[in-house]
Design a protein around this nucleic acid. Sequence first.
RNA 1: GGCCCCAUCGUCUAGAGGCCCAGGACGCUGGCCUUUCAAGCCGGUAACGCGGGUUCGAAUCCCGCUGGGGUCACCA
Length: 482
Amino acid sequence: MKPRVRFAPSPTGYLHIGGARTALFNWLYARHHGGTFVLRIEDTDQERSTPESLQAILDGLTWLGIDWDEGPGKDGPYPPYTQMKKLGRYTELAEQLIADGKAYRDYTTEDELTQQRKDFATARGLPPDADLRKAGFKFKSPWRDKVEKQDRPFVVRFKMPELEGSFGFDDLVLGRLEKPYDDLDDFVLLRSDGVPLYNFGCVVDDHDMHITHVGRGQEHINSTFPQLMLYRAFGWSPPVFAHIPLILGQDKEKLSKRRHPEADVMMHKKNGILPHALVNFIARLGWSHGNDETFTRAQLIELFDFKDVGSSNGVWNPEKLIAINQHWIRNGDPAELARALVPYLHEAGVPEATADERLTRAVKAFSTRVKTLVEMAQALKPYYARGVTIDGAAAAKHLDPAGKEMLKKARALLERTAEWTAANLDPIVDQLAAETGAKKGAIAQPIRVAVTGGTTSPGIGDTLELLGRAETLHRIDAALGH
RNA sequence: GGCCCCAUCGUCUAGAGGCCCAGGACGCUGGCCUUUCAAGCCGGUAACGCGGGUUCGAAUCCCGCUGGGGUCACCA
């Protein structure tokens, strides 16, 4: 049987890096097994859900190259894929549970609940601001065993069976996980406005959508138990669970949107990280395959399995992300990189940049010299300009009288170069070195400073080819004071 | 605090009883190469949290401790 997996984000903000990894692992699992990857929108938190967030999440996934087979914009056999569009289904199932005596209508009001908390605090001699959860407060509804229906607001609560012992499940990454029955209480299924809460909506949808494997963050371990009870109450068989470790910030705290800007997937796009580099990095955070560090997308799909996901949390490591990004800039397809680079060049103030053959050559020349697309755009920008401003220190060091003298000789040779290619241009340095007995540095550096304005650039041949004959001679003349 | 999960270099990790006085990667660092800067190549730095067991033998199994994380809503 082909697996059906899902990613079920809540559209309450941008795509979080932890969510992206959860999506990635599920997606890889589906692609590896030729299964189906479902994208489901859990928008039952009406306070916080926004259309903009939904779009941001879709954009984030798309940027990362994680495509879904069913979900927003993709019809599938088990619609709708948005929870607020199937409210009737939840109500129907809640009614069914009530009829079966497995859930009940709880008419407890806000005031009554507050009173119960107060009484609890007083009985324990606790201060009014004490955290009652820590003190072990457990809500007991007086409606648990009543069946009458009243004409006022109510929530539907699950009637947790009073059973001895414990129950559990076999997690794909953590192994056997168990919990005593009496740890659970009568959790809410449906709010008073009829909207389902997470545990209920999640179970109903995973069942309705025939989900076979649920890969999600370890913060959901505890909610798996009430969910399991729901499966049991409905007589449904639960999916296989895989709880993947959390990603921590550099301060070792859980990666949060508020405290960690790197939690935003799209921030990395802005920083010039390649989508595949981020995918590669994120995959290696928690998952491994021997000593391998870099993987193509095809390799990830071929090698991924939940059983190779580790069980301990991982700390975000920006240096390694950069290193992997550099690796893919260096080893990726230059033409493809050129296309990815164009928007960054536009951003850098080079509106005329297009993914042409010249840009591809430029990408090749700089691929070992920059770590991000932002750096690449910055590095390339001067090559698109007319003329260049020469750095004072560089000029003082390399464009002294001797340097200028050498530059003149170089210019003469350059002018006579038939075909303006790196292969033809590079030997000029050697030729001059042989003729004058000067060191290559005494020849190449004055040229480099004259045409780039600074002391560093790719090889002279590549640099000059990129600049073109006219611009090279123009800049040399300017440096010579003509 | 209750419950749950976790524990190898600073970080990501390999390691499924002897192959490990622990390997790779990033970082940091010495050198080589070199027309600059990179890249590349060769080297160095640095870890099995602690204490008990089990075993001829433990990073690997068991227990305790400690530490870290998660979770306890009419959020997800």
